[in-house]
Design a protein around this nucleic acid. Structure first.
Lengths: 210, 210
DNA sequence: CAAATAGTGTCTTTTAGACACTATTCG
DNA sequence: CGAATAGTGTCTAAAAGACACTATTTG
């Protein structure tokens, strides 16, 4: 491709450009636990995983690369949240950060406890680089997605019972949900597998899938 | 500030960086007309107004600068929609575009017909640079904001009657709304000025403000 | 069988939609 | 006064919440 020249005969690369980073709030629900977020260590500091955008790379691919490296997880579908653009935000220079949200089933996370940990979102303290705001937006976005659709970001892996789905939605919402309303809202959006769950006390529950 | 060096003794500016642009869907409702968008001319091509981000500039300030120049309008509150990052999107080089939405009262737009025009969103044809997708997102975002709150982006300028508010919301929604439900939803969120509108046929309507 | 959980039926309360009626202005 | 628009009251239909009852499993 021939280099573009503007009306001053300058290429785009003759003008100052910012570095662009991606930072991602990876949310998950450990078994029996509350909605949690993945933090990684750099030095003695815990932060959301992130990386700089490489040349010609898509933002989503940069997110996947950072998560593959730092949490051994792949095949996610990152969603953009917001661009943080305060020129003084990063002391390394002029850096735009594109915040992302991703959700991953607990079973697919493989983390090295020295480099990463998963913390309930209510227990996360102060994070550097304004990462608390990213986390807040991620949680709000996740909650609003889960308000009307069954597990839209696929935090459940295979087939599941209505009870498991409701437990998940309650963990995401951070509060108990009503059984009747939940059933009425979700059941029409699900397909039964024909199978039932076994090995539990009580009447076996039907299994569903998407 | 001392220049930051990474573990390879390189500054951030030693790595390739993209140019960053902002593009904005400016939405307005002309009197008695449908929801419309501001388009500007470059050469013989009509597109959404946009500009490149200057060094150290905030994204919102770049948006305001481009709108001041191209539509003579100031004092808006741009909202980020999405970052478009396809490396092949712009033939001038590697350009990230941060799409924005802004709403402006018709009365505050002063446009030069040779350089800009306002077109109903249903009549906009194919735009370059993937700007149709920005417009679609802008309209969807505006509609969802207007679903539950009275004129949240302040398309109305001063005091207004409930009928004027409903006309506005119908223009935004692109469909008629029910009088009873609209009233029940909006009236509790408004404050009356104590004044009534004059000069119209029929019982004078109360004026409201935010 | 008792305890536990799944699934269904039905009543009540709340909300949304429909519509009639009154109030106040202009021409 | 008649036409037009604003504002209120009330009936009905739909949705949400509450709760009781039946069904089927484990121990």
């Amino acid at each position: 491709m021939e280099t573009y020249r503007d009306s001053h005969n300058r290429a785009l690369t003759d003008y100052p450009r910012p570095s662009v980073a991606v930072d991602t709030a990876v949310l998950t629900v450990p078994p029996g636990a509350a909605l949690s977020v993945l933090l990684v260590r750099t030095g003695d500091e815990w932060r959301l995983p992130g990386t700089f955008l490489h040349e010609g790379e898509r933002l989503a691919d940069a997110v996947l690369r950072s998560l593959q490296t730092k949490a051994g997880v792949s095949g996610l579908s990152p969603r953009q949240l917001h661009v943080f653009d305060d020129p003084a935000r990063d002391n390394r220079g002029w850096v735009l950060s594109v915040a992302h949200l991703d959700a991953v089933p607990w079973s697919r996370l493989s983390i090295d406890a020295d480099l990463a940990r998963v913390v309930p979102v209510t227990d996360v303290g102060a994070l550097p680089y304004g990462h608390n705001e990213i986390l807040d937006r991620a949680v709000a976005t996740l909650r609003s997605s889960y308000a009307s659709a069954p597990d839209p970001l696929h935090l459940l892996d295979g087939a599941f019972t209505l009870r498991q789905l409701q437990d998940l939605h309650e963990a995401v919402a951070g509060e108990p949900l009503m059984r009747d309303s939940f059933r009425r809202a979700m059941e029409p959006q699900l397909r039964t597998t024909g199978e039932v769950a076994a090995g539990t006390v009580g009447k076996p529950a039907r299994l569903f899938e998407f």
